[in-house]
């Protein structure tokens, strides 16, 4: 599997990362090296082995349905670049 420059640009766009044109060839090489490294895993025979979604073979813990958090809008908004009242304010999203 190998990425072409167009795919590198697309991935960057989806991740909201702006790339200068001269960065594309370098990233293409780095990303392909990473993919090649990971692809070694495909050499392992996994016939009959269940997929594993975590390192620990345990089930998820569930919490009780109770209100235990919230009610601190000033903390939530403390790092907001812009706010109007207790709302976050962002550049207008036009639909």
């Amino acid at each position: 599997m190998s990425l072409d420059p167009a795919t590198v640009r697309r991935i960057a766009k989806l991740a909201r990362i702006r790339l200068a044109d001269d960065e594309v060839p370098r990233l293409e090489g780095e990303l392909n090296a990473i993919l090649g490294y990971v692809e070694q895993l495909s050499e392992v025979n996994v016939d009959g082995v269940q997929p594993l979604s975590g390192g620990a073979q345990m089930a998820m813990r569930l919490r009780e349905d109770a209100v235990t958090d919230g009610n601190y809008p000033d903390k939530i908004l403390a790092n907001a670049p812009d706010r109007i009242g207790n709302f976050f304010a962002v550049p207008k999203v036009v639909e």
């Binding site: 349905d65 209100v67 235990t68 958090d69 919230g70 009610n71 809008p73 903390k75 009242g85 207790n86």
Partner: peptide
């Protein structure tokens, strides 16, 4: 439900903005 899927913040409709929000 009383609280959110992955946090303990409340779910009531129509509360003051950003009051039912956890980190």
């Amino acid at each position: 439900s009383k609280s959110k899927l992955f946090s303990g913040a409340a779910t009531d409709f129509g509360s003051e903005p950003n009051t039912q929000v956890s980190f």
